[in-house]
Amino acid sequence: MGCASSKQFKRTSGYEDPDILAKETTFTVNEVEALYELYKKISHSIFKDGLIHKEEFQLALFRNSHKKNLFADRIFDLFDQKRNGVIDFGEFVRSLNIFHPDTPMEEKIAFAFRLYDLRGTGCIEREELKEMVLALLNESDLLLSDDAVEQIVNQTFKQADMNGDGKIDPDEWKIFASKNPALLKNMTLPYLKDITMAFPSFVLISGASDDEL
């Protein structure tokens, strides 16, 4: 059978049962299997150990395994829920689930908060926000004076820090993000809605439908 060879790919120790992952997420079993196709590709791009290392994540995002990027680093660290320096398949699927178009907005808001809470203090502090703006400027070759950066940070805090204590707490963030839905645009990946179309090789391999599973 022509499609049998793809099945010979050894599933690594990080592989988790698609039935369980589908139950825990918005994805169907077929979609979890299709995500495995993507996962295999990324996790074998450099180290070939079936786990996604930061360099492989960067390579997939930027076509460059050495590109330093604060925000890609943050996303990698949040995907790496076990904090062991790599992303396994279960972590990959559960984390991507946040970015699914059908995932409730509250989950996206909570994930974005953790992304911005650089030091994990439970609040987004002024210094953290300034650090992120400076990282963005550095990344984009935009030139802004320190005064202009201060102004942007002050303005943002004026809007978001409702009790004026100099930090944005999760409740303030929830209100602020709900009022500014454009902030969460990157928290939804339309690709995830049609993941089996993006990786049609899976459909040939499995031959199974979600009705059957």
């Binding site: 890609a72 990344e139 978001a160 602020f176 645009k185």
Partner: peptide, 25 residues
């Protein structure tokens, strides 16, 4: 004109855009 740092970051940072993961085909 209001300027929102989070808006700036989320709309401009390439590291915040995961669509690259799906475009490596």
């Amino acid at each position: 004109r209001t300027c929102n740092a989070f808006q700036l970051i989320s709309s401009m940072s390439s590291g915040f855009d995961l669509s690259g993961l799906f475009e490596s085909e």
